Computed example of a mutant assay.
Amino acid sequence: MKHFYLTLILLLCSSVVTLPAQAAIGDMQGKAKNTGVVVEQATKAQTFLGHGKINSVNPDAGTVNIAMGPLKALGWPSMSMNFLVQDKALLNGLKRGEIVSFNFAKNTAGGYIITRIVPAAP
């Protein structure tokens, strides 16, 4: 019976010590999740450089369709593709037929989004 009470006391004492530690670990994990967004934003996504001719611009939808050359980095052949833009203001002044250079990156949904687009130098 003494062993039972001694075991019970040791179990209770260890619980008193480990519960606050587990709570602190849980709190740290919660804070890490909250700061994870900042870490993700601070980590630069891999960006790609494209060149092409604008087929169409849809400012309301925040999209642009570009006929572009091949992209070796992604193994893409020449093609026309619709892109979302990071900010609709990027589309201001762009028009059909214009030759552009643009930077784009993969977004969290798995698509590609233009982060910068400018008329190509003549």
Rank of each mutant, 00 (worst) to 15 (best):
M79Y: 08
L8K: 01
A105Q: 11
L90I: 06
T115I: 03
T35S: 11
V85R: 03
T35A: 06
C13A: 13
G62K: 03
P70V: 02
Y112T: 01
L94M: 13
V57E: 03
G36Q: 09
K106T: 00
A73D: 13
F102H: 01
G110D: 07
S15M: 11
A61T: 00
T108C: 03
G69A: 13
G97R: 11
K44Y: 07
T115L: 03
A121V: 13
A67Y: 08
N103Y: 01
T115P: 02
D27S: 09
F48T: 01
G97L: 05
K44P: 01
K95C: 06
P122H: 14
F4P: 03
W76N: 02
N58L: 06
S15A: 07
T108I: 08
A42L: 14
V37Q: 12
G93Y: 10
K44T: 01
L19S: 14
G93F: 09
L10A: 13
S78A: 15
K95P: 02
Y112H: 09
S56E: 15
S101G: 09
A23V: 05
Q41Y: 06
L8G: 04
D60A: 15
A109S: 15
M1R: 04
P20I: 02
T43D: 13
K72E: 11
M1G: 08
G69E: 11
N58Y: 11
S101D: 10
A105S: 11
A120S: 15
T18Q: 14
K53S: 09
A32N: 15
V64L: 07
I114G: 00
T63E: 14
T7P: 05
G69Y: 08
Q41R: 13
M79A: 07
A73C: 13
